[in-house]
Design a protein around this nucleic acid. Structure first.
Lengths: 227, 227
DNA sequence: CGACACTTTGAATTATTTCAAGAGTGGTGG
DNA sequence: CCACCACTCTTGAAATAATTCAAAGTGTCG
Protein backbone atom coordinates (compact mmCIF):
# COMPACT_ATOMS: atom_id res chain seq x y z
CA UNK A 1 0.00 0.00 0.00
CA UNK A 2 1.41 3.27 -1.07
CA UNK A 3 1.95 6.08 1.31
CA UNK A 4 1.27 8.88 -1.01
CA UNK A 5 -0.60 9.81 -3.94
CA UNK A 6 1.59 11.39 -6.48
CA UNK A 7 4.96 9.85 -6.31
CA UNK A 8 7.20 8.96 -9.16
CA UNK A 9 10.04 7.87 -7.00
CA UNK A 10 10.65 4.19 -6.72
CA UNK A 11 12.40 2.58 -3.77
CA UNK A 12 15.51 2.20 -5.83
CA UNK A 13 15.40 5.86 -6.60
CA UNK A 14 15.52 6.57 -2.87
CA UNK A 15 18.91 5.13 -2.30
CA UNK A 16 20.18 5.81 -5.79
CA UNK A 17 18.76 9.25 -6.50
CA UNK A 18 17.26 9.66 -9.94
CA UNK A 19 19.12 11.59 -12.60
CA UNK A 20 16.36 14.16 -12.68
CA UNK A 21 17.05 15.04 -9.07
CA UNK A 22 20.67 15.59 -9.83
CA UNK A 23 19.87 17.54 -12.94
CA UNK A 24 17.51 19.64 -10.88
CA UNK A 25 14.70 19.05 -13.35
CA UNK A 26 11.12 18.25 -12.42
CA UNK A 27 10.87 15.74 -15.21
CA UNK A 28 13.52 13.52 -16.65
CA UNK A 29 14.82 14.70 -19.99
CA UNK A 30 13.14 18.07 -19.78
CA UNK A 31 15.77 20.78 -19.70
CA UNK A 32 13.07 23.43 -20.08
CA UNK A 33 11.42 22.26 -16.86
CA UNK A 34 14.30 22.77 -14.48
CA UNK A 35 12.39 24.34 -11.61
CA UNK A 36 13.26 27.07 -9.13
CA UNK A 37 14.40 26.06 -5.68
CA UNK A 38 12.34 27.22 -2.74
CA UNK A 39 12.27 26.49 0.99
CA UNK A 40 9.50 26.25 3.55
CA UNK A 41 9.56 26.23 7.34
CA UNK A 42 7.89 23.60 9.50
CA UNK A 43 4.08 23.78 9.22
CA UNK A 44 4.29 26.46 6.56
CA UNK A 45 1.60 26.32 3.90
CA UNK A 46 2.84 25.73 0.37
CA UNK A 47 -0.54 26.22 -1.22
CA UNK A 48 -4.14 26.16 -0.02
CA UNK A 49 -7.21 24.37 -1.26
CA UNK A 50 -9.08 26.60 -3.67
CA UNK A 51 -6.06 28.65 -4.65
CA UNK A 52 -5.08 28.90 -8.26
CA UNK A 53 -2.78 26.02 -9.15
CA UNK A 54 0.12 28.06 -10.40
CA UNK A 55 3.04 25.75 -9.70
CA UNK A 56 3.89 22.10 -9.53
CA UNK A 57 6.54 20.86 -7.11
CA UNK A 58 9.15 18.25 -6.45
CA UNK A 59 10.42 17.68 -2.93
CA UNK A 60 14.20 17.83 -2.69
CA UNK A 61 14.48 17.55 1.09
CA UNK A 62 12.15 17.40 4.05
CA UNK A 63 8.54 16.22 3.82
CA UNK A 64 5.16 17.56 2.78
CA UNK A 65 1.61 16.62 3.69
CA UNK A 66 -1.38 17.25 1.46
CA UNK A 67 -4.84 17.19 2.97
CA UNK A 68 -8.49 18.08 2.76
CA UNK A 69 -10.33 19.53 5.70
CA UNK A 70 -13.99 19.85 6.70
CA UNK A 71 -15.61 22.92 8.25
CA UNK A 72 -15.48 21.49 11.76
CA UNK A 73 -11.79 20.69 11.56
CA UNK A 74 -11.88 17.03 10.61
CA UNK A 75 -8.89 16.49 8.40
CA UNK A 76 -7.93 13.76 5.96
CA UNK A 77 -4.32 13.66 4.88
CA UNK A 78 -4.25 12.22 1.37
CA UNK A 79 -0.52 11.87 1.07
CA UNK A 80 2.93 12.36 2.53
CA UNK A 81 5.51 13.50 0.01
CA UNK A 82 9.16 12.71 0.52
CA UNK A 83 12.28 13.71 -1.41
CA UNK A 84 11.88 12.85 -5.07
CA UNK A 85 8.09 12.99 -4.97
CA UNK A 86 6.07 15.26 -7.19
CA UNK A 87 2.99 17.00 -5.87
CA UNK A 88 0.58 19.79 -6.67
CA UNK A 89 0.09 19.15 -10.34
CA UNK A 90 -3.52 18.64 -11.14
CA UNK A 91 -4.87 19.46 -14.57
CA UNK A 92 -7.52 21.75 -13.06
CA UNK A 93 -7.03 25.48 -12.52
CA UNK A 94 -7.41 25.22 -8.78
CA UNK A 95 -5.78 23.19 -6.03
CA UNK A 96 -8.16 20.62 -4.59
CA UNK A 97 -6.21 20.23 -1.36
CA UNK A 98 -3.79 22.05 0.92
CA UNK A 99 -0.05 21.35 1.05
CA UNK A 100 2.14 22.06 4.10
CA UNK A 101 5.74 21.39 5.00
CA UNK A 102 5.98 18.81 7.80
CA UNK A 103 9.54 19.90 8.62
CA UNK A 104 12.10 22.22 7.04
CA UNK A 105 11.52 21.44 3.39
CA UNK A 106 13.09 22.33 0.09
CA UNK A 107 11.32 21.99 -3.22
CA UNK A 108 11.74 22.71 -6.88
CA UNK A 109 8.82 24.49 -8.47
CA UNK A 110 7.80 24.96 -12.08
CA UNK A 111 4.88 26.89 -13.52
CA UNK A 112 2.01 24.61 -14.26
CA UNK A 113 1.56 26.29 -17.62
CA UNK A 114 5.03 25.37 -18.68
CA UNK A 115 4.33 21.77 -17.85
CA UNK A 116 1.00 21.87 -19.65
CA UNK A 117 2.67 23.41 -22.68
CA UNK A 118 5.41 20.80 -22.73
CA UNK A 119 2.79 18.07 -22.38
CA UNK A 120 0.74 19.45 -25.26
CA UNK A 121 3.64 19.23 -27.68
CA UNK A 122 5.72 16.37 -26.33
CA UNK A 123 3.91 13.07 -26.02
CA UNK A 124 6.57 11.66 -23.72
CA UNK A 125 5.97 14.43 -21.18
CA UNK A 126 2.23 13.88 -21.34
CA UNK A 127 2.85 10.17 -20.87
CA UNK A 128 4.90 10.90 -17.78
CA UNK A 129 2.06 12.99 -16.41
CA UNK A 130 -0.33 10.17 -17.15
CA UNK A 131 1.80 7.64 -15.39
CA UNK A 132 2.31 9.88 -12.36
CA UNK A 133 -1.41 10.49 -12.09
CA UNK A 134 -2.16 6.81 -12.61
CA UNK A 135 0.28 5.71 -9.96
CA UNK A 136 -1.29 8.26 -7.63
CA UNK A 137 -4.63 6.75 -8.46
CA UNK A 138 -3.38 3.28 -7.65
CA UNK A 139 -2.14 4.47 -4.28
CA UNK A 140 -5.38 6.26 -3.63
CA UNK A 141 -7.36 3.11 -4.33
CA UNK A 142 -5.19 1.07 -2.01
CA UNK A 143 -5.77 3.71 0.61
CA UNK A 144 -9.53 3.59 0.06
CA UNK A 145 -9.43 -0.12 0.85
CA UNK A 146 -7.47 0.67 3.99
CA UNK A 147 -9.81 3.45 5.09
CA UNK A 148 -12.99 1.64 4.22
CA UNK A 149 -12.24 -1.90 5.28
CA UNK A 150 -9.21 -2.33 7.53
CA UNK A 151 -8.97 -2.35 11.32
CA UNK A 152 -6.84 0.02 13.35
CA UNK A 153 -4.02 -2.53 13.79
CA UNK A 154 -4.00 -3.31 10.10
CA UNK A 155 -3.87 0.36 9.22
CA UNK A 156 -1.03 1.19 11.56
CA UNK A 157 0.98 -1.91 10.66
CA UNK A 158 0.55 -1.31 6.95
CA UNK A 159 1.53 2.31 7.45
CA UNK A 160 4.69 1.49 9.36
CA UNK A 161 5.79 -1.07 6.80
CA UNK A 162 5.13 1.39 4.02
CA UNK A 163 7.18 4.10 5.67
CA UNK A 164 9.96 1.61 6.21
CA UNK A 165 9.89 0.69 2.52
CA UNK A 166 10.07 4.29 1.49
CA UNK A 167 12.90 5.02 3.86
CA UNK A 168 15.04 2.21 2.53
CA UNK A 169 13.47 -0.88 4.09
CA UNK A 170 16.20 -1.11 6.71
CA UNK A 171 13.64 -1.98 9.35
CA UNK A 172 14.72 0.91 11.57
CA UNK A 173 13.77 4.53 11.03
CA UNK A 174 12.42 7.71 12.56
CA UNK A 175 8.84 8.52 11.83
CA UNK A 176 8.92 11.94 10.23
CA UNK A 177 5.43 12.95 11.32
CA UNK A 178 3.39 13.29 14.50
CA UNK A 179 0.77 10.88 15.81
CA UNK A 180 -1.85 13.37 14.76
CA UNK A 181 -0.60 13.38 11.18
CA UNK A 182 -0.55 9.59 11.13
CA UNK A 183 -4.05 9.49 12.58
CA UNK A 184 -5.36 11.93 10.01
CA UNK A 185 -3.77 9.85 7.28
CA UNK A 186 -5.19 6.58 8.57
CA UNK A 187 -8.65 7.84 9.47
CA UNK A 188 -8.13 7.23 13.20
CA UNK A 189 -7.63 9.34 16.32
CA UNK A 190 -4.16 10.04 17.62
CA UNK A 191 -4.97 8.06 20.78
CA UNK A 192 -5.88 5.00 18.76
CA UNK A 193 -2.65 5.28 16.79
CA UNK A 194 -0.69 5.54 20.03
CA UNK A 195 -2.45 2.59 21.64
CA UNK A 196 -2.01 0.52 18.50
CA UNK A 197 1.72 1.17 18.33
CA UNK A 198 1.95 0.16 21.98
CA UNK A 199 0.00 -3.00 21.23
CA UNK A 200 2.25 -3.86 18.28
CA UNK A 201 5.24 -3.35 20.55
CA UNK A 202 3.88 -5.69 23.21
CA UNK A 203 3.09 -8.21 20.48
CA UNK A 204 6.76 -8.09 19.61
CA UNK A 205 6.10 -6.69 16.15
CA UNK A 206 8.29 -3.65 16.77
CA UNK A 207 10.71 -2.00 19.17
CA UNK A 208 10.72 1.62 20.14
CA UNK A 209 13.78 3.70 20.89
CA UNK A 210 13.17 7.16 22.34
CA UNK A 211 11.30 9.67 20.28
CA UNK A 212 9.86 8.49 17.00
CA UNK A 213 12.40 5.80 16.23
CA UNK A 214 11.06 2.31 15.58
CA UNK A 215 12.46 -1.04 14.49
CA UNK A 216 10.08 -3.37 12.74
CA UNK A 217 10.02 -7.17 12.92
CA UNK A 218 8.35 -7.53 9.57
CA UNK A 219 7.44 -11.17 10.01
CA UNK A 220 5.70 -10.63 13.34
CA UNK A 221 4.25 -7.45 11.98
CA UNK A 222 2.48 -9.35 9.27
CA UNK A 223 1.34 -11.98 11.75
CA UNK A 224 0.07 -9.29 14.07
CA UNK A 225 -2.10 -8.06 11.24
CA UNK A 226 -3.63 -11.47 10.70
CA UNK A 227 -4.26 -12.24 14.35
CA UNK B 1 -18.23 14.38 -3.82
CA UNK B 2 -18.16 12.57 -7.09
CA UNK B 3 -19.48 9.07 -7.21
CA UNK B 4 -16.74 8.15 -9.53
CA UNK B 5 -14.61 8.95 -12.39
CA UNK B 6 -17.00 6.88 -14.09
CA UNK B 7 -20.28 7.53 -12.71
CA UNK B 8 -23.88 6.81 -12.70
CA UNK B 9 -25.46 8.18 -15.82
CA UNK B 10 -29.15 8.74 -16.07
CA UNK B 11 -31.36 6.99 -18.52
CA UNK B 12 -31.71 10.38 -20.14
CA UNK B 13 -28.02 10.46 -20.79
CA UNK B 14 -28.19 6.97 -22.11
CA UNK B 15 -30.77 7.96 -24.64
CA UNK B 16 -28.77 11.02 -25.65
CA UNK B 17 -25.29 9.55 -25.86
CA UNK B 18 -22.21 11.70 -25.92
CA UNK B 19 -20.57 12.47 -29.28
CA UNK B 20 -17.70 10.14 -28.59
CA UNK B 21 -20.14 7.33 -28.06
CA UNK B 22 -21.65 8.02 -31.44
CA UNK B 23 -18.26 7.99 -33.05
CA UNK B 24 -17.75 4.62 -31.47
CA UNK B 25 -14.26 5.59 -30.40
CA UNK B 26 -12.75 5.12 -26.98
CA UNK B 27 -11.21 8.51 -27.24
CA UNK B 28 -12.52 11.53 -29.05
CA UNK B 29 -10.79 12.16 -32.35
CA UNK B 30 -9.07 8.80 -32.43
CA UNK B 31 -10.30 6.82 -35.39
CA UNK B 32 -7.64 4.18 -34.78
CA UNK B 33 -9.08 3.52 -31.33
CA UNK B 34 -12.58 2.53 -32.29
CA UNK B 35 -12.99 -0.42 -29.96
CA UNK B 36 -14.78 -3.74 -30.32
CA UNK B 37 -18.22 -4.07 -28.79
CA UNK B 38 -18.71 -6.68 -26.12
CA UNK B 39 -21.48 -7.60 -23.66
CA UNK B 40 -21.50 -8.92 -20.10
CA UNK B 41 -24.26 -10.46 -18.02
CA UNK B 42 -25.23 -9.31 -14.53
CA UNK B 43 -22.43 -10.03 -12.02
CA UNK B 44 -20.14 -11.27 -14.75
CA UNK B 45 -16.47 -10.51 -14.28
CA UNK B 46 -14.91 -8.28 -16.92
CA UNK B 47 -11.40 -8.68 -15.60
CA UNK B 48 -9.84 -9.76 -12.34
CA UNK B 49 -7.23 -8.23 -10.08
CA UNK B 50 -3.82 -9.55 -11.01
CA UNK B 51 -4.74 -10.42 -14.58
CA UNK B 52 -2.76 -8.96 -17.40
CA UNK B 53 -4.26 -5.61 -18.38
CA UNK B 54 -4.88 -6.38 -22.00
CA UNK B 55 -7.80 -4.10 -22.74
CA UNK B 56 -9.22 -0.78 -21.77
CA UNK B 57 -12.97 -0.20 -21.80
CA UNK B 58 -15.70 2.30 -22.26
CA UNK B 59 -19.19 1.55 -20.97
CA UNK B 60 -21.88 1.98 -23.62
CA UNK B 61 -24.81 0.68 -21.58
CA UNK B 62 -25.40 -0.84 -18.18
CA UNK B 63 -23.08 -0.35 -15.21
CA UNK B 64 -19.80 -1.65 -13.87
CA UNK B 65 -18.28 -1.78 -10.39
CA UNK B 66 -14.56 -1.95 -9.78
CA UNK B 67 -13.30 -3.16 -6.43
CA UNK B 68 -10.51 -4.57 -4.35
CA UNK B 69 -11.04 -7.46 -2.02
CA UNK B 70 -9.17 -8.85 0.99
CA UNK B 71 -8.53 -12.53 1.67
CA UNK B 72 -11.36 -12.75 4.19
CA UNK B 73 -13.91 -11.25 1.82
CA UNK B 74 -13.89 -7.62 2.93
CA UNK B 75 -14.52 -5.62 -0.22
CA UNK B 76 -14.01 -1.99 -1.12
CA UNK B 77 -15.74 -0.74 -4.23
CA UNK B 78 -13.61 2.05 -5.65
CA UNK B 79 -15.99 3.13 -8.35
CA UNK B 80 -19.19 2.69 -10.27
CA UNK B 81 -18.80 3.13 -14.03
CA UNK B 82 -21.69 4.05 -16.28
CA UNK B 83 -22.30 4.76 -19.93
CA UNK B 84 -19.63 7.02 -21.31
CA UNK B 85 -17.14 6.19 -18.59
CA UNK B 86 -13.72 4.75 -19.22
CA UNK B 87 -12.24 2.10 -16.97
CA UNK B 88 -9.53 -0.48 -16.82
CA UNK B 89 -6.73 1.56 -18.29
CA UNK B 90 -3.80 1.66 -15.95
CA UNK B 91 -0.30 2.13 -17.26
CA UNK B 92 0.86 -1.02 -15.46
CA UNK B 93 0.89 -4.47 -17.00
CA UNK B 94 -1.57 -5.87 -14.52
CA UNK B 95 -5.03 -4.92 -13.31
CA UNK B 96 -4.99 -3.67 -9.74
CA UNK B 97 -8.67 -4.32 -9.16
CA UNK B 98 -11.56 -6.44 -10.36
CA UNK B 99 -14.33 -5.20 -12.66
CA UNK B 100 -17.82 -6.70 -12.80
CA UNK B 101 -21.02 -5.84 -14.59
CA UNK B 102 -23.69 -4.66 -12.13
CA UNK B 103 -26.43 -5.34 -14.69
CA UNK B 104 -26.55 -6.32 -18.36
CA UNK B 105 -23.70 -4.22 -19.70
CA UNK B 106 -22.21 -3.38 -23.05
CA UNK B 107 -18.72 -2.01 -23.52
CA UNK B 108 -16.26 -1.05 -26.19
CA UNK B 109 -12.81 -2.48 -25.69
CA UNK B 110 -9.46 -1.57 -27.18
CA UNK B 111 -6.09 -3.21 -26.69
CA UNK B 112 -4.10 -1.34 -24.09
CA UNK B 113 -1.05 -1.48 -26.34
CA UNK B 114 -2.85 0.41 -29.06
CA UNK B 115 -3.73 3.10 -26.59
CA UNK B 116 -0.19 3.20 -25.26
CA UNK B 117 1.16 3.45 -28.79
CA UNK B 118 -1.23 6.26 -29.68
CA UNK B 119 -0.29 8.07 -26.47
CA UNK B 120 3.40 7.72 -27.21
CA UNK B 121 3.09 9.49 -30.54
CA UNK B 122 0.15 11.83 -30.06
CA UNK B 123 0.48 14.27 -27.21
CA UNK B 124 -3.25 15.02 -27.22
CA UNK B 125 -4.07 11.36 -26.56
CA UNK B 126 -1.57 11.25 -23.73
CA UNK B 127 -3.07 14.47 -22.35
CA UNK B 128 -6.50 12.88 -22.40
CA UNK B 129 -5.13 9.92 -20.49
CA UNK B 130 -3.58 12.30 -18.01
CA UNK B 131 -6.77 14.19 -17.47
CA UNK B 132 -8.88 11.05 -17.09
CA UNK B 133 -6.42 9.67 -14.55
CA UNK B 134 -6.24 12.99 -12.75
CA UNK B 135 -9.98 13.31 -12.47
CA UNK B 136 -10.05 9.79 -11.10
CA UNK B 137 -7.45 10.87 -8.59
CA UNK B 138 -9.53 13.86 -7.55
CA UNK B 139 -12.51 11.63 -7.01
CA UNK B 140 -10.42 9.15 -5.08
CA UNK B 141 -9.20 11.89 -2.76
CA UNK B 142 -12.72 13.13 -2.08
CA UNK B 143 -13.67 9.58 -1.32
CA UNK B 144 -10.74 9.21 1.07
CA UNK B 145 -12.08 12.16 3.05
CA UNK B 146 -15.48 10.49 3.13
CA UNK B 147 -14.10 7.11 4.18
CA UNK B 148 -11.66 8.47 6.71
CA UNK B 149 -13.59 11.28 8.33
CA UNK B 150 -17.31 11.26 7.69
CA UNK B 151 -20.11 9.65 9.73
CA UNK B 152 -22.55 7.11 8.35
CA UNK B 153 -25.29 9.71 7.82
CA UNK B 154 -22.89 12.01 6.04
CA UNK B 155 -21.66 9.22 3.81
CA UNK B 156 -25.10 8.04 2.82
CA UNK B 157 -26.49 11.55 2.34
CA UNK B 158 -23.51 12.59 0.24
CA UNK B 159 -23.84 9.41 -1.79
CA UNK B 160 -27.54 9.93 -2.45
CA UNK B 161 -27.02 13.53 -3.49
CA UNK B 162 -24.20 12.52 -5.74
CA UNK B 163 -26.29 9.84 -7.41
CA UNK B 164 -29.07 12.36 -7.86
CA UNK B 165 -26.67 14.81 -9.49
CA UNK B 166 -25.52 12.21 -11.92
CA UNK B 167 -29.01 11.12 -12.73
CA UNK B 168 -29.97 14.63 -13.72
CA UNK B 169 -30.57 16.25 -10.32
CA UNK B 170 -34.31 15.79 -10.62
CA UNK B 171 -34.49 14.79 -6.98
CA UNK B 172 -36.20 11.49 -7.76
CA UNK B 173 -34.49 8.37 -9.04
CA UNK B 174 -33.99 4.64 -8.68
CA UNK B 175 -30.82 3.52 -6.97
CA UNK B 176 -29.13 1.30 -9.49
CA UNK B 177 -27.22 -0.84 -7.00
CA UNK B 178 -27.87 -2.98 -3.95
CA UNK B 179 -27.41 -1.98 -0.32
CA UNK B 180 -24.40 -4.23 -0.22
CA UNK B 181 -22.76 -2.43 -3.12
CA UNK B 182 -23.53 0.92 -1.53
CA UNK B 183 -22.14 -0.31 1.78
CA UNK B 184 -18.96 -1.59 0.17
CA UNK B 185 -18.54 1.72 -1.60
CA UNK B 186 -19.11 3.77 1.57
CA UNK B 187 -17.10 1.59 3.94
CA UNK B 188 -20.17 0.61 5.98
CA UNK B 189 -22.28 -2.51 6.46
CA UNK B 190 -25.45 -3.00 4.50
CA UNK B 191 -27.49 -2.83 7.70
CA UNK B 192 -26.02 0.54 8.56
CA UNK B 193 -26.84 1.84 5.09
CA UNK B 194 -30.40 0.60 5.45
CA UNK B 195 -30.85 2.09 8.91
CA UNK B 196 -29.37 5.37 7.76
CA UNK B 197 -31.73 5.66 4.81
CA UNK B 198 -34.61 4.98 7.20
CA UNK B 199 -33.31 7.66 9.53
CA UNK B 200 -33.01 10.17 6.72
CA UNK B 201 -36.58 9.34 5.73
CA UNK B 202 -37.90 9.92 9.23
CA UNK B 203 -35.94 13.17 9.38
CA UNK B 204 -37.89 14.22 6.31
CA UNK B 205 -34.78 14.36 4.16
CA UNK B 206 -36.17 11.89 1.64
CA UNK B 207 -39.19 9.87 0.63
CA UNK B 208 -39.19 6.27 -0.46
CA UNK B 209 -41.44 4.70 -3.06
CA UNK B 210 -41.31 0.91 -3.32
CA UNK B 211 -38.10 -0.74 -4.36
CA UNK B 212 -35.07 1.48 -4.74
CA UNK B 213 -36.84 4.68 -5.72
CA UNK B 214 -36.13 7.75 -3.60
CA UNK B 215 -37.00 11.45 -3.68
CA UNK B 216 -34.55 13.77 -2.00
CA UNK B 217 -35.35 17.00 -0.16
CA UNK B 218 -31.94 18.45 -0.77
CA UNK B 219 -32.32 21.27 1.75
CA UNK B 220 -33.29 18.97 4.60
CA UNK B 221 -30.74 16.50 3.39
CA UNK B 222 -27.97 19.01 3.92
CA UNK B 223 -29.40 19.98 7.30
CA UNK B 224 -29.60 16.31 8.27
CA UNK B 225 -25.90 16.07 7.60
CA UNK B 226 -25.12 18.96 9.89
CA UNK B 227 -27.37 17.86 12.74
C1' DC C 1 -48.37 -19.07 -5.61
C1' DG C 2 -43.83 -19.98 -4.06
C1' DA C 3 -38.96 -19.31 -4.18
C1' DC C 4 -35.38 -16.32 -3.91
C1' DA C 5 -32.89 -12.26 -3.26
C1' DC C 6 -32.83 -8.01 -1.17
C1' DT C 7 -34.16 -4.98 2.60
C1' DT C 8 -35.60 -3.62 7.08
C1' DT C 9 -35.60 -3.86 11.97
C1' DG C 10 -34.17 -5.39 16.72
C1' DA C 11 -30.97 -6.49 20.42
C1' DA C 12 -26.48 -7.37 21.96
C1' DT C 13 -21.61 -6.71 21.16
C1' DT C 14 -17.44 -4.37 20.03
C1' DA C 15 -14.00 -1.35 18.06
C1' DT C 16 -12.94 3.09 18.25
C1' DT C 17 -13.65 7.60 20.08
C1' DT C 18 -13.95 10.96 23.62
C1' DC C 19 -12.63 13.03 27.71
C1' DA C 20 -9.22 13.47 31.12
C1' DA C 21 -4.77 12.98 33.32
C1' DG C 22 -0.02 12.01 33.38
C1' DA C 23 4.64 11.15 31.47
C1' DG C 24 8.23 11.77 28.23
C1' DT C 25 11.04 14.78 25.18
C1' DG C 26 13.42 18.64 23.49
C1' DG C 27 14.60 23.34 23.52
C1' DT C 28 15.65 27.85 25.91
C1' DG C 29 17.45 30.72 29.11
C1' DG C 30 18.91 31.65 33.66
C1' DC D 1 24.11 22.34 33.77
C1' DC D 2 19.80 22.33 35.44
C1' DA D 3 15.00 24.14 35.56
C1' DC D 4 11.21 25.11 33.21
C1' DC D 5 8.04 25.38 29.42
C1' DA D 6 5.63 23.78 25.46
C1' DC D 7 4.56 20.09 22.93
C1' DT D 8 3.87 15.38 21.89
C1' DC D 9 2.85 10.95 23.36
C1' DT D 10 0.81 7.47 26.40
C1' DT D 11 -2.62 5.54 29.33
C1' DG D 12 -7.18 4.96 31.63
C1' DA D 13 -12.19 4.97 31.96
C1' DA D 14 -16.56 6.02 30.08
C1' DA D 15 -19.30 6.85 26.08
C1' DT D 16 -20.80 5.91 21.44
C1' DA D 17 -21.14 4.84 16.60
C1' DA D 18 -21.26 1.17 13.94
C1' DT D 19 -21.12 -3.87 13.58
C1' DT D 20 -22.76 -8.46 14.25
C1' DC D 21 -26.12 -11.81 14.70
C1' DA D 22 -30.79 -12.94 14.06
C1' DA D 23 -35.38 -12.70 12.23
C1' DA D 24 -39.07 -10.90 9.83
C1' DG D 25 -40.73 -8.09 5.86
C1' DT D 26 -40.92 -6.78 0.88
C1' DG D 27 -40.69 -7.23 -3.88
C1' DT D 28 -39.93 -9.85 -8.19
C1' DC D 29 -40.11 -13.38 -11.36
C1' DG D 30 -40.68 -17.98 -12.93
Amino acid sequence: MALDTASLRSRAVESIPSPSLHEGGLFAGCPELVGSPFAYARDEEIYGEGEEAEFVYRVTSGAVRTYKILGDGRRQITGFHLPGDLFGFEPGEVHTHTAEAISETKVLMVRRRQVARAAATRAEVACQLWSVAASGLRHAQDHMLLLGRRSAVERVAAFLMDVDDRLGATGTFDLPMTRRDIADYLGLTLETVSRTVTQLESDGALLRAGGRRVSLRRGRMRRAIEA
